[in-house]
Design a protein around this nucleic acid. Sequence first.
DNA 1: TTTCTTTTAATTGTCGACAATCTGATGCTT
DNA 2: AAGCATCAGATTGTCGACAATTAAAAGAAA
Lengths: 228, 228
Amino acid sequence: MLATEFKDAITAADRVLVQIRTAIVDGEIPAGTKISEPELARRYDLSRAPLREALARLERCHLIERTPNAGARVVKLSIEGLRSLYQLREELEGLACRLAAEHMTEQEIAEVRALLDQHLSTQRVREGESYYQEAGDVDFHYRVILGSKNPYLINILSDELYFLVRMYRVQLGMNGPRVSRAFDEHKAIINAIANRDGELADLLMRRHIAASKRNIEQQLLQQGTSHG
Amino acid sequence: MLATEFKDAITAADRVLVQIRTAIVDGEIPAGTKISEPELARRYDLSRAPLREALARLERCHLIERTPNAGARVVKLSIEGLRSLYQLREELEGLACRLAAEHMTEQEIAEVRALLDQHLSTQRVREGESYYQEAGDVDFHYRVILGSKNPYLINILSDELYFLVRMYRVQLGMNGPRVSRAFDEHKAIINAIANRDGELADLLMRRHIAASKRNIEQQLLQQGTSHG
DNA sequence: TTTCTTTTAATTGTCGACAATCTGATGCTT
DNA sequence: AAGCATCAGATTGTCGACAATTAAAAGAAA
């Protein structure tokens, strides 16, 4: 969960949005499931009005697909979907790096560095608990995205695309040797930003994301061949 | 209006969305206006439920800004907003060009060329009617975006960013000498795509968009200095 | 048995009313 | 007179019920 998501006035629609979104990202509501408004309204104990508001926002971040008069389904994860998503993500986070190299303040850069060091020294990360690795990674990318200072870019990446990215990562797994390497890559990126070398930061970020994609792609292929 | 926007089942929310969106883009509802749900419900003769659905989608394409419990306002046009928007648009339509050079079929390319020729020979365009110029331009960009075959990219550009782009263009004016030049630029871009030269198509599209931005930027500056 | 039609049940879309919250005006205190 | 608290009015958020549409089940015809 992003810290600054809701400023103060939290409405019922906001709450149920977070609940359902988490359930979908974590696979608690499986991919491809038909969404029933009456059922969800009962489950989360509210009326259909705020629920529909939440569903509209879930559609916005591509976690569900709605067709008029026919209802909504949770998206299915696929190779083509992953490729399209990461193609865009590479481009946009690359841009975010170039802009961050231009616009981030020294203090913001120092904060990201502190975050990385602090995270690396955390017991649970060293023990390989995937939740904390995931949280640390999301945090790093989020800071860089914010550093771009472009509100439309920030909105697309952190409000629309990121939950789907996390859905792929959570359900298809961040595993093994990529973990420690990712930290080195994060460090290299923030160094390039600190040197105001946007071009290099861009390049490194694209490679970082491409590596992550290959990792997930492999899982999807294995899963597809063994089960189907 | 994009042709394939709604397949068959048109709901009241869809209709009022189109109406309000057009009113905002055309400046009929001025920038910065406070949106009153009861008032709009009366004006368009429906209840607040479908109206709120429409407002949620307007927020999605950045035409209005909502704050919980406080209501919505039509977005204000500004230099910083224009720069952020076009910064993103350059990057994304550049990417769309690279992908289009890879994925567009020969027939799709031929259709775009026919479209350009047909448009150029249209009486009203030669007479400088801005609506038809705008429509032709939107059509060209839309085809290239679709040619990328990346559903997320298509969604962001044509469903989320484009209405705001059009709002800037409509309210701050496409004027004078840029018109005929834009046609040549379009031709050069589709030629590069036809030659499967994505890199060149990318470059040309970025320049094309940058030129358009400078045009609007100038209008905004003049307006800002003379009135303020 | 298969296919098409009809009917039925369930779901989505819409409505009007009520509750919670915010904005602005009024009056009080310092 | 300036600032703060209180209150009235209006607006947004939520609810339960009804209408319109769809998907599925049952039945009839080939």
